[in-house]
Structure formats: C-alpha cells, structure tokens
C-alpha cells in the first residue's frame, strides 16, 4: 500500500521531536527517581509516537512494551539503591568513634569532590565537542543531497515476518553477536569468581 499525502502530520512531527529533546534532558537532569522515570516514560512514549507518524504502527507495540518492562525493573532497582544510599550517606557523617567528622576533613573532602567533578566534567565535554565538530564539518554536504521519495510504502507486520523468514542474514549476524556478548559475560563472571 502506498501513501502520497504526508503533509498532514508534517507539523506534528516538529512538535514531537521538540518534546523528545526536552523530556530527554529533563529525565537526565532531575535527581528524584519518581519524576525522572515519569519523564523517561514520556520520552519513550513520544519516540514511539514519532514512529507512528512515520507509519510504523507495529513498532509502537513491539518496542514500547519491552521498553516499559525494562523501565519497570530499572525503576525498582533505582528505588532500592536510593533507599540504601540514603542510609549510607547518614552513616558517612558519623566517624568511627561515633562522633561527627571535623570541619577540616569535611572541607578537604569538599575540595577533592570539586576537583573530581571538574575532571569528570571536562573530559565528556571535550569528547562531545569533538564529535559535534566532526559532525558539523562533514555532514554539511551530506544533508544537501537528500531527495525524499514522493510515495511511501507502508510496511505491515506480515511483510516484516516474511522478511525475517526469508532473509535470515540479519538473524545470523545478530545471533553471532549475541553469542559473542554472552561469551564475554560468562568469562568475566568466571574470572571474578576465581579471584574471590
């Protein structure tokens, strides 16, 4: 089936892409676990809505449900770690003798923390700036060559199933990748168990 009219959702896509960037930033910056995951949920929802506007209706269900399940277990894990970390922070303020830490050691730790944050902040910024520089330098000519197709084909679930059934080169590649990852995972676990 072909579609020739793609103007209807054209402006809607700008709104969705803006929402994707805003929710991504919010979910990364906000520290509270509850709000963080609400914005992450909205981010993933808007990405799936964007797939829907590209006429990939099946992906809305095929990708959103496993992502939601993954987010659920990540949320539970974060809740657990947050509960334990608050206890640890409270314990850190108390010294071995049961007294609270002195002002000097606190100041020193704050200074060390500031240096650590500075060194942590500079390296990713430089790395990202390098990537942005490469992108801006080399993508200028590339994006000018885009010629959009006038008619768009709708790919249904039957077409996808047919493709996976007949063209199994992708499957072989991904299975090899999976075996390689599992191999690394098992070897690393075995090495650590041996050390312990």
């Amino acid at each position: 089936m072909n579609i020739t009219n793609i103007i209807i959702i054209k402006n809607f896509q700008y709104f969705i892409l803006a929402a994707i960037i805003v929710f991504a930033l919010l979910s990364l910056i906000i520290k509270g676990i509850g709000k963080k995951f609400v914005f992450l949920f909205l981010f993933i929802l808007f990405v799936q809505v964007f797939d829907l506007t590209l006429y990939f209706g099946e992906l809305f269900f095929l990708l959103f449900i496993p992502m939601a399940l993954f987010m659920l277990i990540l949320f539970l894990y974060s809740l657990q770690s947050e509960a334990y970390s608050s206890e640890i922070v409270n314990d850190e303020n108390i010294g071995r003798d049961g007294n609270t830490k002195t002002g000097i050691s606190k100041r020193q730790s704050l200074r060390g923390e500031a240096i650590n944050v500075y060194s942590r902040f500079v390296m990713p910024v430089l790395f990202s700036a390098g990537l942005i520089f490469l992108f801006v330098k080399f993508s200028g000519d590339y994006t000018a060559k885009f010629n959009a197709e006038k008619s768009i084909m709708l790919a249904g679930f039957i077409n996808i199933a047919n493709d996976i059934f007949f063209n199994y080169g992708i499957l072989v590649f991904i299975v090899i990748l999976l075996i390689f990852i599992l191999f690394l995972w098992v070897i690393s676990i075995l090495l650590i168990r041996k050390k312990q």
Partner: peptide, 30 residues
Amino acid sequence: QILYENSVPILSFVIISMFLILIFQFVIIF
C-alpha cells in the same frame, strides 16, 4: 521511510537489534 521505497529489511533489523539491546540491559539490571 523517507529516502528508500522498501523499508521492510531495516524494520526487521531494528526490531531484532532493539530486542537484543533491551535483553542485554535487562540482564545487567536483573
């Protein structure tokens, strides 16, 4: 979708690879 007429092979690739990535992340968190 926009540049090429036939988007079925890339769609199947995206579905399978995203499933694998999600399973791998799920395994780490689990």
